[in-house]
Amino acid sequence: MTAIAPTRVTSLPEPSGRRAGLRGELASEWTKLRTVRSTWICLAIIVVAGVGLSALVLSIEAGRWVHLAADERALFDPVRSSQTGLFLAEFVVGVLGALVVTSEYGTGAMRTTLASVPRRTSVLIAKLLVVGAVVLVVAEVTAFASFFVGQAVLLGQGGTSLPAGSTLIDQVHAANVPVYGIGHPGALRAVFFGGLYLVLLAFLACAIGFILRHTAGSISTYVGVLLVLPLIVSILPSSFANSFEKYLPSNLGLGMTAVTTRTTDFAGILLTPWVAAGVLAAYAAAASLLAGWLLVRRDA
């Protein structure tokens, strides 16, 4: 009876905190996100594509101003047009959001993650928060850069600010393409919502990743929702499609980035900015709840 095991001396200091949970998992997710090259490539594409496409679109619109018909002039929104690049960047955001989850399922690393933090909802929340925070910073930088670069492009092509109190009629009759300052009513909100649109989509992509657990499947589903769904809806009879067209995520993005005073032009086509943001947030929340429910229930 001498087989008493020697006492092990552990070199590890005591953990502070009660148990492995959200705090450590947040740090871990940030480490994982910043230590793969694909993250930085995605973020760089978001900025470059976002700002670049916006500048290109505004440059074309400014050059065509004199040829535009009255209704096209009336619908022109220099703020929303400056956010056009976000509709290219949104696909990269989807790839980023999905990969954060599905790359772990693809390699089996998700098992290691869930074994480190058995409270699985902490894993979901940490991934959403870290991806959301990173996309928020980059998307807002992109949105504001797009706005300022875009307005500079308009100015460079002879654009002028309409005097305060100008009406839609004034815009239609304006000799030069109109330019808005960030102080224009609704402009700041519209630009901020441009970035927020990408954050909500990142949540959606992340949740789809948890639901489908497969990279190709998740990204195609995400692209399908943003790109293919509107195509299908556009084929449907307009009397039928008009009632829910405005609830499509891409149209919610258009609604979110419109300047408030101009949304009435889109009555029936787009939701007002705050309602659009709320609906998209509800989509992201619903997908995240489903993702969390499945994550807790399913085998890893």
């Binding site: 450590g24 740090a27 871990s28 480490t31 230590t35 793969v36 090259r37 790359s103 690393a109």
Partner: peptide, 18 residues
């Protein structure tokens, strides 16, 4: 993750459990 270094992988695990 094939693109992550061994060090970063272990660091991310270490952070979850302080």
């Amino acid at each position: 993750h094939p693109g992550r270094s061994a060090y970063a992988h272990l660091l991310s695990l270490a952070q979850t459990n302080a």
